[in-house]
Design a protein around this nucleic acid. Structure first.
Lengths: 340, 340
DNA sequence: TGTTAGCACTCACACCTAATGAGTGCTAAA
DNA sequence: TTTAGCACTCATTAGGTGTGAGTGCTAACA
C-alpha cells in the first residue's frame, strides 16, 4: 500500500532519527541517501507520510520524527535484520552455555548480557512456578522443631525454606510425612495445588502430621512469586529523551515495581517469538515513551519465561530484536540441555 | 572549641540547607531562628565558620552551604536525634517481625522499608557466607545422574544446587557420600574451607566418591558470593542535586556494580553500630557527592551483615540514622529469634 | 502528471543587554 | 562586641534581535 519510494523515505527518516535523535529534514535525506530526487520531492512524500500518520512534526519549522504508528510499520515491514559480529555472539555463548551454571545465575547472566549488548534496561522473568510440576518434595529435620523443606520443580527449579514448628517432631515422623507428601504432590503442577487438593491432602494426614503439613503447604504457596532480574537501569539516563529527569524518574520507579513489569511481560508471553511493544501500545501510561522488545524462552518445548529489553521508543529496533532473540535462544539451549 | 552561638548558627544553616537545598544567607537565619542578634553578627560568625572549613560559598553573592567537614561536625556533635512516629515504627515491626519470613524475604522487606522511610536508596548486604558455619550438607539423588546438594549454614542460610554427573550413582552411594561429607564439614566455617581442607576431604574418599565430591565442593565454592538487595534508586532522581543527569547516571551505574557496593559497605562493617560516610570520605570518586549511612545487623551476638541508605550529602542525617538503626535492630531481632 | 526551483513564512534557539535582588564584606558608630 | 549603613558582586531573569533549518505553496519544466 506504500509505494517503493515512500518506503525508502520512511526508512531513511526512521534510521536517521534512531541514530541522531534529531528531527529529520528533507534536505538531510536527499543528501545522505541519494534517492535521485530533490528535497522538494521528498517534502511531498513526507507530507503524505505525515497524513497517513507515520510521521509527526514537533513544530512547523523542524523536521519530521516517526510516530508510534510509523515505528510499528518500520518494525513490521521496513527494518533490516541486524547481525551481531561473531565475537559478540561468541561472548554470549561462552558466558551462557556453561552447564554448571545454576538457572538463577544463568538468568542473571542473561540480564547482564542483554544490557551490555543493547545499552538499555534488561528484564528477565524467571519461570513462573505456576506451570511447573512437582518433582520432589523433601522434609529434613535439622533440629527437633526446625524443619527444612526442599522443593524440586520440573523443569529445573529448586526452592527451599526453613520452617519452625510449635511442637517437636522426631526424624522418623518427619521422614514419614515427607514420603507421603512426596507421593501426593509428585506430578501435579503448582497451579493445580488449589484449595480442594490442599484440603484433600491435609485430611489424609492424621493429627500427627496435620499442622505440619499445613505449614509446609502454606510456605509452598508463598514460594509462588515470580522473580525478575533487571540490569542496566542507568543506561536509559544516557538517552537524550531522558534528559528530563522527571520522566526518567517515572520510568525508573515503574521498573522497581515488580507487578507492573510482570503484567507487561506476561501479556507479551502469550505469543511466542520476539514481540515488540511500541510506546502507546503499552497500557501503562508512564511507560508510553518507551518500547519493549521481548521474547519467550524454553525448556524443551515448554515456554517457561520471558526476557526482554526496555528503551525509549527511539530505539534501534533491529539490534534490540537481534539481541533479545540471541539471548533467548541461547538461554533456551542451555536450560534444555541441562534438563536433557 | 566552638562557642555556643557558633554551634547554633552552624546547626541552623545546615538544618535549613538540608530542608531547602538552597544556599543560606545571614538574613534567613536571623529571621527564622531568632538568636537575638542581627544578620550582621551572623555574617561575622559565618565568616569564621567558613574559615574553619565548615561552610563554603558557591559564589560571593550567594549564601553559605555546608562543606563535608561541616556535615561531619553536624553528625558528630550537632544534630538532634530523630524520632519516628509510632505508626511508622509499628509498620516496620509488623512487616519484619513475622517468624515465618525467610531470611531472604526479610532482607528484601528491610530494603523496601528503608527506602520507604528515607526516600532514598537502600542497600542491604546479606550475610557473607565466609563467616558462616556448615550445619548440614545433604545430597539427594533425583535421577541417576542428577544430584541435589542442599546446604544449611549457621546461622540461618540455606542454599542449594543441582549437579549433573557424568557417571551414574546409586541412591545408596549418594547417601553414603552425603553422610561422610556431612561429618567432615559440620562445624567448620566457609572460610576454613581452603585448599588444604579440600584436598584432605577429597583424598579421604575412594575412587567412588572422588569426582562427585570434587563437583560438590566446587559448587559450594561458587555459592560464596554475597547477595545485595537494593531498592529506591528512582528516589535519588527527585533530589535537586541530581537534576544533572550525568551525575545521576554515574551514581546509578555504581549502584549496579556489586563489587563497588560491597567494598564500601564491608569497610563500614568493621566497626559496629551506625556509621556515616560523608561525601569525600568515600574513596570511590563518583559517589563523593553522596553520603552513606550504614549499620551492622546481628544474629545473637554475631555481626552477619550490613544495611544502609545512600543519598546526596545534603541528606537528613538525623532521620537516616534513625531509620537505619530502627531497621537494623528490627532485623537483628527477627533473625535472632528465628535462630533462637 | 510527476518533479523541481524559488520564495515567503515560521519558529526554536542562541546571543546580547539590562534590570533585579539576594547576599556579602567592610567601616564606623553605638 | 554588636549593629546599621553602604558599596559591591554576581547569578538569574526578562526582553529583544538575529540566525538558520525547515516547511508549504506556486509556477515552471520534462
Amino acid at each position: 500500500m506504500l509505494d517503493e519510494r515512500k518506503r525508502l523515505v520512511l526508512r531513511a527518516i526512521i534510521d536517521s532519527y534512531i541514530e541522531t535523535a534529531e528531527p529529520v529534514g528533507s534536505r538531510t535525506i536527499a543528501r545522505k541517501h541519494d534517492l535521485g530526487v530533490s528535497p522538494a520531492t521528498i517534502r511531498n512524500e513526507m507530507a503524505d507520510l505525515e497524513e497517513i500518520g507515520y510521521l509527526e512534526q514537533p513544530h512547523v519549522s523542524a523536521g519530521r520524527i516517526p510516530s508510534d504508528k510509523g515505528y510499528r510499520f518500520y518494525v513490521d515491514a521496513l527494518m533490516e535484520p541486524h547481525a551481531f559480529p561473531k565475537s559478540e555472539v561468541e561472548r554470549v555463548e561462552k558466558q551462557l552455555l556453561d552447564p554448571q551454571l545454576t538457572p538463577e545465575r544463568a538468568l542473571q547472566a542473561a540480564a547482564r548480557l542483554l544490557a551490555l549488548l543493547t545499552d538499555s534496561v534488561s528484564l528477565v522473568v524467571a519461570p513462573s512456578t505456576d506451570q511447573l510440576v512437582f518433582k520432589h518434595v523433601q522434609l529434613v529435620c535439622l533440629e527437633p522443631n526446625s524443619i527444612l523443606v526442599t522443593l524440586v520443580l520440573h523443569p529445573m527449579i529448586v526452592k527451599n525454606r526453613l520452617i519452625r514448628t510449635d511442637r517437636e517432631y522426631t526424624p522418623e515422623e518427619i521422614g514419614e510425612i515427607s514420603e507421603a507428601l512426596n507421593q501426593k504432590l509428585r506430578g501435579i503442577t503448582y497451579r493445580q495445588l488449589g484449595l480442594t487438593v490442599l484440603r484433600e491432602i491435609i485430611s489424609d494426614f492424621g493429627d500427627i502430621g496435620h499442622t505440619l503439613v499445613d505449614l509446609v503447604l502454606q510456605s509452598l504457596a508463598e514460594e509462588r512469586e515470580e522473580q525478575i532480574y533487571s540490569t542496566g537501569a542507568s543506561n536509559i539516563l544516557t538517552q537524550p529523551e531522558f534528559r528530563d529527569v522527571q520522566r526518567a524518574a517515572a520510568v525508573l520507579a515503574a521498573l522497581e515495581q515488580k507487578d507492573i513489569l510482570l503484567s507487561i511481560l506476561s501479556s507479551a508471553a502469550k505469543s511466542s517469538g520476539v514481540q515488540v511493544i511500541i510506546g502507546q501500545e503499552n497500557a501503562y501510561a508512564p511507560m508510553q515513551t518507551c518500547s519493549i522488545v521481548t521474547c519467550t524462552y524454553y525448556v524443551g518445548n515448554d515456554v517457561v519465561g520471558t526476557l526482554g529489553v526496555l528503551g525509549p521508543t527511539r530505539m534501534d529496533y533491529s539490534k534490540m530484536v537481534a539481541a533479545v532473540d540471541l539471548v533467548a535462544q541461547t538461554v533456551s539451549l542451555l536450560l534444555t540441555k541441562q534438563h536433557r
